[in-house]
Design a protein around this nucleic acid. Structure first.
Lengths: 303, 303
DNA sequence: CGCAGCCGTTCGCAATATCCGAACGCGGCG
DNA sequence: CGCCGCGTTCGGATATTGCGAACGGCTGCG
């Protein structure tokens, strides 16, 4: 047997990145290293894993089937080695965390930094991306999710709640007319969220009047807010994202009596048994950090 | 993560061998390499895996628990990489075969050599040892077994039958008196088989008269035959082992009407799903090789 | 069309990792 | 006591790995 764990991890990284140079950039390695590892792994297996088209690669069917089998086996191998750190030993290995970008930028940095300082032998990988990652496929240990959970195979724990408000800029309203009741909604556009169709973004009943899909969209809340400030449409956004802009008058809240339920913020993780200690400790850390008054509540009531 | 597959395999090999030098000898490596790999692995995990007592090592509880989890995960990882060789690709990797010594020496050499020639990229590891190996722990892919199978968790396939006969040398009989009926049996000794107590070796009912355990024993059929030729007792042995000595008059068959059923010869393998292709092809090869008249039947009827 | 940019592959070289064998200390045994 | 077998450490030789440059191919743009 002449392949290594690093060969397997490189193979999976190239699959996930879709290219050798992408995987190399993520791992801070040179392209030639990644290319050579893939070639060596193919040679060890005796079958091609990728087809090459003039500087482009595409996975073979064999490669896709192989990855389906390698991921859980590798995860178990890693979990086994990490499980052997007894209850009193310090955390080791890698903790990979995914979180929505806007939430992560604002509220997770110091929380995670505190955890990292408490566990100096633990490697932390943070991925802020609003795109819902498939926990089983992407190799993340823990994710934070805003909204109702759709993947019932994951373990989850509620952290806090995230209220949303419908907003628009004064310029937008001046240009597009009044919005004084729900019957005005269909005459307006709403800025799109790239990762979710309007049907899912707009949380109220199908019978309830709704704005039209807008001609602009973005893949995170900060960008959506800025487009709304720019007068490009309504925006339905978490309060923590628009709080400052509302206070500064760049955005106004519209239809404050809309029956919008707050969204839950939860930690989720794959159902590996036994639960990896690093995951348990991190989730506990999150729960403690968000216990009581969430940060944005404190700020809003302090002004 | 700074351990490798080789670290894991070395760790498991040291556990199985019970010592660093034992594992080094099996792998044809120097002691210092194995010692350093264990130390490096312990360092990577952050916990000791072995306690050291003046040149002796003993596994910690952590080590034993870890190995229970690592073995199946590693086996799956290896099976995954070996599964990707499509139906038309040649076999690769390693096929580890265990078989009883006397049977292996006589009848398996050319069969396995033929298989190895047909699959030049496949590494073959042969272990002839009458001691029953625990397939799940020892890392063998296929085993041959003579006798009724006791491990119902293994997959198995019947190859042929192995008739046994009770024999003694003319010298033994001249010295110890006649053996003309079963009532004479308790007056005689039978040569012991190291891996099996007499209760299991003697296949007939407990009511049935039986010879006494002899003062000599061996761990394989060839040695037992030679002890019988040397006049040290009766011996109950597969026909293929004593066939030549009977023909040459060095041994005589006694009580030919004893109701001894032939023993089944089977191939066994662990229930990995999907069945590794190399195992399937090898078992098919064995079935073909032993189809029809077993080799020892042909020789006996040819004289 | 030419050019720039991006892709993956190959190559030579420097740095790093691995393996070997010798030496050492320890415990058990005769 | 000496011998043996055990595991550990060390220096040196060998093998492996990673880097960066060069290359060819393809695409998009002016």
């Amino acid at each position: 047997m002449n392949w290594s764990i690093i060969d397997i991890e490189t193979f999976l990284a190239v699959l996930d990145a879709g290219s050798i140079s992408g995987a190399a950039a993520r791992a801070d390695l040179s392209k030639s290293v990644v290319s050579k590892r893939i070639t060596d792994f193919e040679k060890a297996l005796g079958v091609p894993l990728f087809t090459r088209h003039a500087g482009r690669i595409a996975p073979t069917d064999n490669a896709l089937a192989l990855s389906e089998r390698l991921r859980p086996a590798l995860a178990e191998l890693i979990a086994a080695t990490e499980s052997v750190t007894g209850s009193e030993a310090e955390l080791r290995g890698r903790l990979a965390i995914s979180a929505p970008m806007s939430f992560g930028i604002r509220h997770l940095g110091p929380v995670i930094a505190g955890f990292a300082r408490a566990h100096p032998e633990l490697e932390i990988v943070l991925d802020y991306d609003d795109q819902i990652t498939d926990m089983g496929r992407s190799g993340f240990d823990v994710g934070l999710r805003i909204g109702h959970l759709k993947d019932s195979t994951l373990m989850s724990r509620r952290l806090c709640e995230d209220p949303r408000v419908l907003v628009a800029s004064p310029d937008y309203l001046a240009m597009h007319g009044p919005l004084t009741g729900i019957s005005d909604l269909p005459r307006h556009e709403i800025i799109g969220y790239l990762n979710v169709r309007l049907g899912e973004l707009w949380p109220l009943n199908a019978d309830f009047p709704r704005p039209r899909p807008g001609r602009v969209m973005a893949n995170n809340g900060d960008a959506m807010r800025d487009l709304a400030i720019g007068g490009l449409g309504l925006a339905l956004l978490p309060l923590f994202i628009v709080h400052d802009a509302i206070r500064e008058g760049r955005l106004g809240r519209v239809l404050p009596d809309l029956p919008l339920e707050p969204l839950p913020v939860s930690a989720v993780w794959p159902p590996i048994r036994p639960m990896p200690r690093k995951v348990r400790l991190f989730v506990d850390h999150l729960v403690n950090a968000f216990a009581g008054t969430p940060p944005w509540h404190a700020k809003m009531h302090g002004t």
